[in-house]
Design a binder for these strands. Structure first.
Lengths: 334, 334
DNA sequence: CTGAAAGCGCTTACAG
DNA sequence: CTGAAAGCGCTTACAG
């Protein structure tokens, strides 16, 4: 079932059939009807491989994200995909599993598949990007970036939300704030930690290295972090985790220890995911606009594909105060 | 940068270069080293389009799911993708947004892209499958099926969990159980509703049509359902929702009305997602093994691709009782 | 407006 | 083991 069959049935050459099928203007009325009719009758479906071997475009973009199971990235994937549809792109989605090696395999496969562009929330450093950069495929970073590249990006403001959270907690009287950081192999992990440390200095909170725990953005490490921090000789009265999955793990540990969040301990989560509003009390969270992030990433990519060099954009983040952040149990100064 | 350049640099023909590059046994030691060296030096990356135009395989499988933002499907996507990797398949992922039209567009594009196989949690009826069936592309259904096809499938047992839930609730003394059903355009929506209605007959629960609300598996409809049911003149003392997103919406409504789940009202959710264990009390849920589902779907697909006709499998589901299902407030008989 | 022909980058019988 | 050549299914100058 090829264009040859369609041409034969329509009584024209493959060239004419091709022109009709791809909407080329130079076709006669008769040719158009004959070919269209033959194509539908035969249920002809052009072979995208052959087409993109001739043209240089595949009408697909690659999307490499660290973890679909993270609601933030699920929302982001959805936003990217819906926006890509507007430009007739199919989104080829790869899930790196928070693992640089799997990420690099996906980059590789997507280059091999000749995607027209690539959107990634990358991990690691320049060495992981070698292939992508060398290929020259239009690329945009989203959420995370890799230092020392000129790749345009759409990222959240990783400091304002954290700063507001620390100010909020200290104004309530908290001085010991436990922080479950993201991996330092990611820009978001690094920037959020830096913002946290800065905020400590700016307020009267304890700047105690023991209150820091390094996780990997996955739920298990949030649980490990909470366990570690709560067992400290001088434990925190407030907990802050750098993404939603680690927040989930940490909350589970608080629950299993009978520590009531919003009463015995204050908790601030990163990312405003729907489930967090269901907790009782609902969680105070650091929120950013994931839909805008996905949409803008696609918009930037289309510009790069068009040969332009768009400006990177940073989206605001802010603290949404709900019930999970009371003053410390012993009173403001404890 | 094509295989021609590699061949030239290595001083062999493109045929020999191709053989070395694709691991064909009939190659000399010298050819192998010369070509490999040239390829790495040049950073050669074979064009997948050209290759799959010659071979008939693209080493990709298509995965069409209704909604990435549904944690159940995010987990399923992850499971499928990880298993597909074992077979060197790249997973081309499409998100149908619980919409038959978007689903059909994805089917279309994936056929055009000549995926080697298709895994789908489909919506609608046979007409939506025409193209897929006509193309003859190896296909497996997962989670949901479409009636009157011979497509192998991996599905959950949609009745046991529901039956256990209704028995559990009635044994506690509940007689008015509100049910937020899934869309009847999906097999899971239909089967779970049938199981619920059967369970009502089998127990002494009220078989009252007013206690049924039809949602669309998305969170907004869960909220609408809870609102509707709770405003009934004779409202339910227990709520059961047919998926996790509708559960989330319904729980939000209970919270906003000050109805304490696990005290003022009993709640059973479908799908054992991590966030549900964080609620206080944790939710009683109907659980099934999403990892096994994804893994088996890929395994079945590889068998179909190999030309076999594997048996469909049904995975068990069961009730996990946690704190959200107390007896009705007025006592066993109310 | 149309057709014959070349070519996109590979792979693979075929002959040696 | 190797090379010349055909061909996968399209698209697009080129000439008419």
């Amino acid at each position: 079932m090829t264009i040859r069959n369609v041409a034969d049935k329509a009584g024209v050459s493959v060239a004419t059939a091709s022109r009709v099928l791809s909407g080329h203007p130079s076709t006669s009325e008769e040719a158009r009807t004959a070919v269209s009719e033959a194509a539908t009758k035969l249920g002809f479906r052009p072979n995208a491989q052959a087409r993109s071997l001739r043209k240089t475009s595949t009408q697909t973009i690659g999307l490499v994200l660290p973890d679909v199971r993270n609601p933030f990235f699920a929302d982001l994937a959805h936003a990217v995909e819906q926006r890509a549809r507007d430009f007739k792109y199919l989104t080829l989605f790869g899930n790196a599993n928070e693992d640089a090696e799997q990420q690099d395999r996906y980059f590789d496969v997507m280059l091999t598949q000749r995607v027209d562009g690539l959107i990634a929330a990358p991990q690691g450093d320049l060495t992981d990007l070698q292939g992508v950069l060398a290929s020259g495929v239009p690329t945009v970073f989203v959420d995370r970036v890799i230092a020392n590249t000129t790749v345009p990006s759409v990222t959240p403001d990783n400091s304002t939300g954290i700063q507001e959270a620390v100010r909020h907690l200290t104004s309530l009287g908290h001085r010991r704030i436990g922080y479950i950081a993201g991996p330092q192999s990611t820009s978001t992990g690094r920037e959020r930690l830096a913002a946290f440390l800065n905020a400590l200095k700016e307020t009267n909170a304890d700047d105690d290295g023991a209150l820091l725990f390094f996780g990997d953005f996955q739920s298990g490490s949030g649980a490990a972090g909470a366990r570690h921090l709560l067992e400290l000789p001088h434990p925190p009265t407030a907990l802050l985790a750098a993404d939603s999955l680690m927040s989930i793990g940490a909350i589970a540990v608080c629950n299993e220890r009978g520590l009531a969040i919003g009463k015995d301990i204050a908790f601030v989560a990163y990312d405003d995911i729907e489930a967090f509003t269901l907790l009782n009390p609902a969680l105070t969270v650091i929120s950013h606009d994931v839909d805008a992030m996905g949409r803008l990433a696609v918009d930037l990519l289309t510009q790069v594909i068009a040969g332009n060099n768009p400006e990177s954009v940073i989206l605001p983040s802010r603290l949404i105060i709900r019930g999970s952040t009371p003053p410390p149990p012993g009173g403001p100064t404890q």
